[in-house]
Design a protein around this nucleic acid. Sequence first.
DNA 1: CGCTTTTGACCCGCGC
DNA 2: GCGCGGGTCAAAAGCG
Length: 122
Amino acid sequence: MLHGGVFEEDSSSQSIPSSEKGLGGAREKKLEQRHRVAFITKSEIEVMDDGYKWRKYGKKPVKNSPNPRNYYKCSSGGCNVKKRIERDRDDHSYVITTYEGSHNHYSPFTVYYNQMPPNAWT
DNA sequence: CGCTTTTGACCCGCGC
DNA sequence: GCGCGGGTCAAAAGCG
């Protein structure tokens, strides 16, 4: 496990290991998650707000980790993006954030940053 | 008032 | 054929 590493996977070429097992949410099994990005951040808190609104919709304990796994979903309009937050079992100081899907709307933070002129920061 | 959060229960697919 | 695992959803309550 590389600490502070970022993983970007494309389901189009990368076959999901047994981890997915093709099972997972039987309901969304039909939905193709084309974008999967895992971020590893060293932080004691998982309060990583990217500008989107995340609504926690589930909690489940993991065998390989004494810590539970948190499931978040984007509550933006028409936004079906899901976010998975888990703690590293080797170093609970590290937080693994996995994003699935793409936002149907721009991030409030992105728009704000886009409309914010560079000289405005002075 | 609106939205968010929390727990429990349910469902499906695969394995043996 | 049955069981297990994993994931999601539902409802309710609390808070700002």
